[in-house]
Design a protein around this nucleic acid. Structure first.
Lengths: 203, 203
DNA sequence: TAATTGACATACGTAGCGTATGCAATTATT
DNA sequence: AATAATTGCATACGCTACGTATGTCAATTA
């Protein structure tokens, strides 16, 4: 007969997972500074003792939460670009996907707002922001293939993700998200088409 | 004989100014959360009592500090665009000026890093809206003059200011702000040139 | 079965925020 | 001019939340 108990390492993993989940929820809803460690650890049936043991401090847990979210975003974006027929199309789709993810409150709060304030520049995060590096790789490849003009991929990736983020927030806060979304996506496409080499431009 | 004393309202204004100055300095050097109200009010020869009286709470003082900095940035940007020969050049200079301000540590810390975490989405700040409408007007005029392609001015203004803001944050958080700034400005120029009608493009 | 490790809880000290209250100086009232 | 009302700011207090130091019990190992 098998033991009904879980093995010790399973228990530990479960505790870590519970803490990450509880922290993630608290960070997303009330923000990093307003999230009380006593409160959300209790909500997970634990205490701050467990948190300090596994993550060192509040910031340490936040890093783990961020890493988890980052990974999820990354795989979602990969799935989007994998579907596209051309690299250029995949690039466009991926960015629009990013805009849509930036609409999610959890991502807005944890990744885009509190993240930089707590941990500094996303590029220096332990799991370097996967989204930006994905855009960077795409731009580099597109440049290599002669599809877009000669620009610095990383710098352009930053500008583009900033534009996406702002577009998302504009949409999120607008009275008519549907209509605003249409305008934003069209303008975004226009901005991106400006990167194409002359021969490939439509307008 | 005239009284050596200042009038009461002058004293009050002076107190407010002292608090704003002390807070600004503390926020700039150690950051919002690490700035102890007891410490920096004492440094101004006052107590937290004065702060609560005038600004309600720590966040209230932060808003006032931010408003002051915003105003300074705004007038600097006006001065920049006033100097330009053409509207297009003024448009470029103003945006690049904004990106370059991100090199200043005080702006880095207060406006770009702590600001969003403490007060929320920068797009909703009063000054950001003023900035966006300025860009929108510029874009509309440039379109009218046939300098740039046919795009929705407001939507594009949002994207551009998002790109600028993100570029600024990238610079603010980078290890070598000088070098990063160069890359960012160049990429930004490239992105903007994509908006020009075909005949006016250099690349 | 005795010893040891380690996962997690408990207990304590401290810093910092917000509020309630106090006071003194200015302004208003008669 | 004398008293009353206002208010700018300080003082005092309680509370929350963080970090550390220590305790404890289960699981592993010898």
């Amino acid at each position: 007969m098998k033991t009904a108990h879980k093995t010790r390492s399973e228990m530990i993993a479960e505790t870590r997972a519970k803490l990450i989940a509880a922290g993630r929820k608290a960070f997303a809803t009330v923000g990093y500074t307003n999230a009380s460690m006593d409160d959300f650890t209790a909500e997970a049936g634990l205490t701050r003792g467990a948190l300090y043991h596994h993550f060192g401090d509040k910031k340490g847990l936040f890093e783990s939460v961020l890493a988890q979210i980052d990974q999820e975003m990354s795989s979602r974006l990969d799935a989007i670009s994998a579907k596209a027929k051309t690299r250029w199309q995949g690039f466009l789709d991926e960015n629009i996907g990013y805009v849509e993810m930036a609409l999610e409150p959890e991502i807005q709060r944890i990744v885009l707002r509190d993240g930089p304030a707590v941990l500094g520049d996303p590029a220096q995060w332990p799991n370097a922001n996967a989204c930006i590096s994905a855009i960077t790789r795409n731009l580099a490849a597109l440049k290599e293939e002669g599809v877009i003009r000669d620009i610095d991929p990383e710098a352009m990736a930053r500008l583009i993700s900033g534009a996406s983020l702002y577009a998302a927030q504009w949409i999120a806060n607008s009275d008519d998200p549907g209509a605003t979304s249409k305008k934003a996506v069209k303008a975004f496409r226009g901005l991106m088409e400006g990167l194409l080499v002359d021969g490939k431009r439509a307008s």
